[in-house]
Simulated assay, not measured.
Amino acid sequence: MAARLSAHLTIMANAAQKAAKQLLRDFSEVEQLQVSIKGPSDFVTQADIRAEATIKQELTKARPGYAFLMEESGASGGDNWTWRWVVDPLDGTTNFLHGMPHWAISIALERRLPDGTIEINAGLIYAPCTDEMFWAEKGSGAFVNERRLRVAARRDFSQAVFATGIPFAVTSPRQRLSFARTLSTLMPQVAGIRRFGAASLDLAWVAAGRFDGYWEIGVKPWDIAAGILIVREAGGYVTTPSGGDQIADDLVAANPTLHPKLLEAVADGVSAAGG
């Protein structure tokens, strides 16, 4: 795989793999982790903090002038950046803490263009427990390890399996109402809906054709930045519930055939919740 990676993706892969070694050691001793609680269902572990520090150190060493947006430490590097790393060092923290192997490291690279717009230039999602590395660079396609990725070709809604994020205790009434409305619309029409608890991997699995689509309301940029590019480079659509391309915290992803119908259901849910 190394021969196919660009300089940026090589840097990202090396940082993710170095952090993964630490995370896997901690995961094997999950009961002994020191855990502090930020809020209900929102935990931060010492493993999370160490992984973020390792990734930041590795990326800074390779590209010292780049800015950061990171889950734990926030934004750094100034406002007038041209290149910015967007990092979630441990997406699926609750899974990790409960000994469930569905978690990942997500790293994206954003570029600010001369006109001020921001594009995602490269994305990498690494699942250490399965040793699957999903990666893409703008205009160059999407891959998992050595294999090219394409979104699923299913055309029938009744055969589709979608992923989502279920609102929990601290989420807003808007998010809960939107989810309930969308779920009630979709459930009678589709083959299944899954909630696995790691947004980055939900998007990676859409790119791999394992899921036919994914939607979530109120997700964070470090959870989805890499996955947005990987899905798009695998031939899928990723938009806001209103169909826009500039995604902040609500998104709908699917293959080109199923995206319009999933979008309609999610947009109806958002509208019903007053969004």
Results as ranks from 00 to 15, higher is better:
residue 199 A to W: 03
residue 13 A to C: 06
residue 14 N to E: 15
residue 143 F to D: 02
residue 178 S to I: 01
residue 158 S to C: 03
residue 66 Y to A: 15
residue 196 F to S: 04
residue 228 I to H: 04
residue 227 G to T: 08
residue 83 W to P: 01
residue 265 A to E: 06
residue 175 Q to P: 02
residue 181 R to K: 08
residue 233 E to I: 07
residue 26 D to S: 10
residue 82 T to W: 01
residue 132 E to G: 00
residue 138 K to N: 12
residue 257 T to S: 11
residue 35 V to F: 00
residue 88 D to L: 03
residue 237 Y to I: 15
residue 135 W to C: 04
residue 98 H to C: 03
residue 266 V to K: 01
residue 101 P to M: 04
residue 26 D to W: 05
residue 251 L to S: 05
residue 70 M to H: 03
residue 237 Y to V: 15
residue 272 A to E: 13
residue 64 P to G: 07
residue 187 M to N: 02
residue 13 A to F: 02
residue 167 P to I: 02
residue 33 L to T: 07
residue 258 L to S: 06
residue 145 N to F: 01
residue 250 D to T: 03
residue 223 D to A: 00
residue 33 L to K: 02
residue 95 N to W: 04
residue 220 K to Q: 14
residue 250 D to S: 14
residue 20 A to D: 07
residue 256 P to F: 09
residue 197 G to W: 05
residue 41 S to Y: 07
residue 96 F to I: 02
residue 26 D to F: 10
residue 205 W to S: 04
residue 172 S to D: 03
residue 126 Y to C: 00
residue 183 L to Y: 15
residue 212 D to T: 00
residue 168 F to I: 10
residue 164 T to L: 08
residue 148 R to M: 09
residue 253 A to H: 05
residue 18 K to I: 10
residue 261 K to S: 13
residue 160 A to V: 03
residue 138 K to M: 14
residue 21 K to S: 13
residue 156 D to I: 00
residue 268 D to W: 09
residue 201 L to F: 10
residue 228 I to P: 07
residue 39 G to M: 03
residue 78 G to V: 02
residue 86 V to L: 01
residue 233 E to N: 07
residue 2 A to D: 13
residue 117 T to F: 11
residue 19 A to E: 12
residue 265 A to W: 11
residue 154 R to V: 04
residue 220 K to F: 09
residue 207 A to M: 04
residue 257 T to R: 01
residue 3 A to H: 12
residue 15 A to L: 08
residue 14 N to R: 13
residue 47 A to Y: 08
residue 147 R to S: 13
residue 165 G to H: 12
residue 150 R to S: 15
residue 150 R to Q: 14
